[in-house]
């Protein structure tokens, strides 16, 4: 469905996107990466908001940069961070946005707006100004507007930042439900989210795709190579020098380090590999290179 080919984009001399190649099928696609990896830049390129220096993006056979308008009709986009006009109620604002999407018929528009407000549990609050909404409500409003007109390409850029765990769950449930017959691209830096939700994922770092595949495949590729152990504070630097430490966590006052290598290091135990290990391992690999 969505094809990104040799996409490059530089921004003030530094490469934001470096020769990106991706093919995304229907379903939920997760984009992982640290801050500044180029996730948003890639998302914005797909969402017709910026042109690339070279390469192209194709959606359902349509070139995104040349026919932005056509793509926009089928696109639902939830930016990482957005605002709303002050003092306009949720229902009025959504109605306005629906009109901009192209709902000309008044009753149809009304119906579409109401059902989206119900779907996102905002119907009770529909007369309140969106600018007074809490973070979760505002995010739900964001998804409501992204779903206007039943788009088949949905792009959500770090949607769960600032949401409480419950709200986050609800949000993902909704996305999962939608992803059955649509392309949903989700960017996040929370690895767990991707492993739980996505059928496919990619890891980005410094403007490049460093790893791509289904979470299960990625995890199995690393199985048997990840070891965990408790490390004393004093010996930490020594351990780091001798092993490939991909992450350190504090747990109950102690430091637990994860190491990737073929043989079991001394004092370390085999660990169940999760996507986070894959992520850290990939980043650590990139760092060495």
């Amino acid at each position: 469905m969505l094809k990104v080919c040799n996409l490059s984009k530089s921004y003030k001399g530094s490469l934001a996107l470096n020769n990106i190649n991706l093919t995304i099928k229907k379903g939920m696609f997760g984009l992982l990466g640290p801050n500044g990896a180029g996730k948003s830049s890639l998302m914005r390129s797909i969402a017709t908001l910026q042109s690339a220096d070279s390469g192209y993006i194709e959606y359902d056979g349509i070139c995104v940069s040349a026919h932005a308008h056509e793509v926009r009709r089928r696109l639902g986009y939830l930016p990482q961070d957005f605002g709303v006009y002050p003092n306009i109620s949720a229902i009025r604002l959504l109605d306005h946005l629906a009109a901009l999407k192209g709902f000309a018929n008044k009753s149809q528009r009304k119906e579409a707006v109401s059902s989206l407000l119900i779907k996102t549990n905002l119907y009770e609050q529909r007369k309140r100004a969106v600018s007074t909404f809490s973070g979760g409500m505002k995010q739900r409003f964001g998804i409501a507007q992204a779903l206007l007109g039943d788009p088949d390409l949905i792009i959500v850029d770090e949607p769960t930042a600032g949401l409480d765990p419950q709200e986050r769950n609800r949000f993902y449930n909704l996305l999962c439900e939608l992803s059955e017959d649509k392309v949903v691209v989700l960017s996040t830096h929370i690895v767990e989210d991707v492993s739980e939700l996505c059928t496919e994922c990619a890891i980005m770092n410094r403007g490049e795709i460093v790893l791509q595949g289904s979470p299960a495949n990625l995890i199995s590729s690393l199985s048997g190579q990840v070891w965990r152990g408790v490390v004393a504070k004093e010996t930490l630097s020594q351990v780091e020098q001798s092993y490939n430490v991909i992450s350190k966590k504090r747990f109950a006052g102690e430091i637990i380090a994860s190491v990737v290598q073929d043989e079991q290091p001394e004092g370390f135990l085999p660990a169940t590999v999760d996507l986070e290990d894959v992520y850290f391992a990939t980043l650590a690999q990139a760092k060495i290179q």
Partner: peptide
């Protein structure tokens, strides 16, 4: 904050029939 339900109600999403 109003409490919201745990699950999202089943609601169809309306598509646009024709562009104005």
């Amino acid at each position: 904050e109003m409490d919201s339900q745990n699950t999202y109600p089943e609601q169809g999403i309306h598509a646009i029939e024709s562009l104005p």
